[in-house]
Every structure is written in structure tokens, then in C-alpha cells.
Write a protein that binds this DNA or RNA. Sequence first.
DNA 1: AAAGTCAGCAACCGCTCCACT
DNA 2: GAGTGGAGCGGTTGCTGACTT
Length: 248
Amino acid sequence: MGRAPCCDKVGLKKGPWSPEEDQILISYIEKHGHGNWRALPKQAGLLRCGKSCRLRWINYLRPDIKRGNFTKDEEELVISLHQSLGNRWSAIAAQLPGRTDNEIKNIWHTYLKKKLASDNSTVAQPRSTKKTKKQKAETTNFDSNPNTPQPESISSLSSLSTDQSWSDDKEESFLSEEDVILPQMDESFWTEMFSMDNGTSSSSDQTLDSTGDASGYTFGDQYSIEDDKEFWLKVFCEAGGVMDMSQL
DNA sequence: AAAGTCAGCAACCGCTCCACT
DNA sequence: GAGTGGAGCGGTTGCTGACTT
């Protein structure tokens, strides 16, 4: 018997979204919010399944999506978090503002995985001269969404670095010298950090353990600050001393 | 210039999780 | 506690376009 499909697929459109469909979805959500995804396409007048609408909104149309190439520190953070969390793309995405799980997953499979496999010495590079559809769109529509942070500007992030080896190649990154902040991991640092942690719903339901496995470690008040310190210090060190503190 | 190859990425599919009854 | 439905997640597919031959 099995479960009924998520939506009635008869007569529903599949495949790439047209600009008109995008506009309908955007204006509907701006007006009413997404509410019930299943009911949304009908109410908005879209011949799409709710799941498709949700995916399109989450991965592409959301105003806070950051377009553009991954910066060096974002790449490092993805690699580090992947070591800790495994293929939990949504958990990884929660640590990267404006990046989606789908995007991170794509980057991982197309680039970072190879970069890691190449044994650190011969670092794989994406095809340098190839300009993708996405990049072309960014070139032409760079300012189309005023809410979208620009790739060159990472000043909205507060990053930390304790690793000089990372900063050796920071000329490849969009980080400027003044964006790199050396951490003062005193009590006020942790106090601030955990006040951010407790106030962030995106990370509050994740389970992480201090050994790097994705189990048995839940953020929240049932764990001591010392436990969290140990975990975050480990992540921090694995990241080569680069952390996006705004997401903690 | 044309054909073949391959990388990038948007989107789909199937499954699990979770809240609600 | 069991059943149901919606949301979310991760794996995978397939199209597009840049690059190579």
C-alpha cells in the first residue's frame, strides 16, 4: 500500500522554474508567509507541488541567500564541520550564514571532496576559467537583491583566527586584515558565545558529540558550559582557527 | 567549426522525524 | 501507544554550458 505521495502529481509542473513562477512564489510568501507548504501552491496559483515550492524558496529565492563563490574561510569551515558532523548538510549550513544545505552539498561533491583527496600538497582547483551560469547571473544581477550580502563583503561576519598557516593564503580570501580577529577565550568570550548559542534555534536541536561523532551531544541547558567549550574548541581548532561567530 | 567530454548545480525522490490527534 | 500528515534532510539525477580535442 505505502504512503500517499506528498502531493497530487497529476498536472503538476516539474523541472526548472520560470521567472514568472519565481515571482509568483516570492510575492505570495512576502504577502502571506509560507505557512502550509502543501497548501501554498494552490493558494498562490502555482502548478507545483509544495515540496518543490519549499525547495525553490529555501535554496534560491530566500532574500537572505548569499550568492557567490565560497570564500576560503567558508571552505575551511565546511571541511572542518564535515569532519565533525559528516554528511549532515543542514547542520553544516546552519554554521554558514546565507548558504544552503544544497549548495554546500554541491560544493562538497564537486570541489571540496577532491580538494581533500588530493592530499593537501596538490590542492585541486575548480576549473579556473570556466564561468558558470550562476557566476554569469551574479555578474549581471549583482545588485538585483539589496538584501543579499555581496561575496566580497564578509565584514558582516566576525571571524577568528589562531592559525598563521591559514592566514598565509588569505590573499585568496575575501577577508581583509582587519576582519581577522584573534580570539580572547576568556570567561566573557564564552559567556557571549553561549548566550548566542542559547538564542539560536538553528543549532539548538542539533546533536553533536565531543568526539566528533554526530550523536549524543545536545546543545542546551542539560549540558554544562564546560562540555560545550570542549566541543567548540575542537571545532575551532579543526577549522584552522576560523570560526563564524555570528552563527554560534 | 563541430563533436565529445565533463563540471556545476538546480531540482527531484524517497526516506525519516516530529507534532498532532 | 498508534496512526497520520507535514516538514525537513540527504542522496541522486539530469540538464546546461564551458572546455577540450
